[in-house]
Nucleic acid binder design. Structure first.
Lengths: 334, 334
DNA sequence: GAGAAAAATGCAAAGGTTTGCATAAACTGT
DNA sequence: ACAGTTTATGCAAACCTTTGCATTTTTCTC
């Protein structure tokens, strides 16, 4: 049995031309049902699949979507936030379903060209960036000339790039309002507002505080997103502040977990002494002690939106940014 | 300014041949330094990069490594275990460093061809599979004919595929021995032993129990790996068992988190009433209340090993499986 | 059964690189 | 100034498909 290396080999074997084989394998109606099935059977038998690279070159598409995770506001290199695997899983499934591969790349933006490089490399048909981090202007610059780009994150007026995300400001507002309603006056925000989304969440907290006439009762601790780094900062903060906060709005569920642990170590009861609310609505929040209240974002829908919009952009359409409503989920920590 | 679409355009512009441009951009010594720099400058100026697909076709490599996560023993579709994002991050970094893209795919093995399909698609130069799940025999079958394949997971005698992982049996043994040393007699194992690695961890527990003469004091609760699903099972188990375990060996840190929460809800103190130890050594274990004891595996080293071995396999070398020693990390939960 | 229409297949170009080999240009030494 | 090297560049094949158009084969109609 000869080894079938390409379409030509199979064509010779079947006694037809290469073009016919190509069309037959693609299921083209141009080829008679009889030969079509004969060729398919032959291909199956020899385990032959047309070379993907040659195909890509010819039809001028890679069949791959790049997913980038910029870590601009991260000092550490690690990234263990379950948020990302949740989002990645959803994207991987959705893209596979649509016939695309997912090319993953983490980026620590040291220069301003990290995105250009990827775009120009021609390795993907489109790009999804997860989180703007502090790289909004670069995203805008590239989006101006490169259409198939969709970003998970916040939306601001005048933004050039197309984004999908929850209304972070509203989310922050919901979180702070909830704590205020529970009787907290002094509130602390844990998170680095340099990142666009987190800045918006903080803004939302400010809104709520202002409405309550408690503008000056909000303090900010720019804890790092990275769980392992956040804890010392949080511990120091709780130890130092003479005016201990009565409520904590954490910019993510993972930061909230760090907060829960630090509070436990200080012997403070949650929600008795301090109330805590996270952000993201991850599954892990169900497993904390006490179970974490949070502002949940619908990642399933978000991922679906991103994929849908990206494919439309690849097809040449234009799409508007999407801002989804976040939801307050009250569990045991507040 | 004309648009440079390919090497030929640039060649015409520079007044040289396409071959020269190709070599110049590749930095070949065959081309004089002068022309080399002139061409590079010209390429820069026009933002030109050689077409990746054409390149791939010509040199017969995709420059991509597939990373598959089979979810064979999972009932649910979700997968939020931080283990994966940690591993994925390490792999992404390592592969990027070596000039490879990472193509991610989650697989729910419904038939026996999920792996064949990916291998034969020709979209990648090599494959890393994370976790054997219950698909060991399929991995073996494919490994017999497809060399560039490395698997994260357990190792068993006679195994065909090349694996990298920690000594799960030893790890299970360490965990159980530790609990025994703390005075626990009745021990429960939380995890689905259908998955190869988890089965080995259970085996290790059995070893330790046997040495202590307590073979019959070990019970098994095949909780699902998925955090959100595990909790009800665990709660039911704790509620039902007349002989409540004094120690719990969880097959992963995430399962351990579920256990911690369930115990808290039953009003049981950890480690006072029940001692708990997890497996993986993830960062998240530092953030639980109480901080989680665990068996840690060195994922950084593991990822490095997998990449190294895979590249050697791509180069045609042969490689032996690697079994790394796990380490007992005692924190507050045991 | 001849001619026209329809159906099935073949031909060859195009997609953009890389690279072995051939050729041309620039040197070396005498 | 010339033969002999060395160095720099050009040529064209190869990588493997897909697809518009040309051509052959089949089917149908009268």
């Amino acid at each position: 049995m000869v080894k079938i290396r390409n379409i030509k080999d199979l064509a010779d074997l079947a006694g037809v031309s290469a073009g016919t084989v190509s069309r037959a394998l693609a299921g083209s109606e141009l080829i008679s049902l009889k030969t079509r099935e004969k060729i398919k059977a032959l291909a199956d038998e020899h385990g032959f699949r047309p070379n993907a690279m040659a195909r890509n070159l010819r039809i001028q598409r890679t069949g791959a979507i790049g997913v980038l995770i910029p870590l601009g506001h991260e000092t550490g290199q690690h990234i263990s936030d379950p948020f990302f695997i949740t989002m990645l899983g959803l994207l991987a499934d959705g893209l596979t379903e649509r016939g695309y591969d997912l090319v993953l790349s983490r980026v620590i933006p040291t220069d301003s060209e990290w995105l250009e490089r990827f775009v120009d490399s021609g390795r993907v048909d489109g790009l999804i960036v997860i989180g703007q981090s502090n790289q909004s202007s670069i995203l805008d610059a590239v989006a101006a000339r490169y259409r198939p780009l969709v970003v998970w994150g916040g939306h601001v007026a005048g933004q050039v790039h197309c984004s999908v995300g929850s209304d972070n400001r509203l989310g922050g507002d919901l979180a702070a309002s909830h704590l205020l309603a529970q009787g907290c006056h002094r509130i602390a925000f844990f998170g680095d507002p340099t990142a666009l989304e987190l800045g918006q969440r903080l803004q939302g907290c400010r809104d709520a505080m202002r409405r309550a006439g408690l503008d000056d009762q909000l303090t900010v601790l720019p804890a790092h997103l990275v769980a392992e780094d956040a804890h010392p900062d949080i511990a120091r903060f709780l130890g130092a502040s003479s005016q201990r906060p009565q409520g904590i709005v954490a910019a993510s569920d993972v930061i909230a977990m760090s907060a829960l642990r630090a509070l436990a170590e200080f012997g403070l009861a949650v929600p008795g002494d301090v109330r805590v609310i996270g952000y993201d609505g991850l599954a892990i929040g169900e497993q904390t002690v006490p179970r974490l209240s949070t502002i949940s974002q619908d990642l399933t829908q978000g991922a679906a939106h991103m994929i849908d919009m990206l494919l439309r952009r690849i097809a040449g359409e234009d799409t508007e940014s999407v801002v989804m409503p976040p939801h307050l989920v009250v569990r045991m920590s507040s």
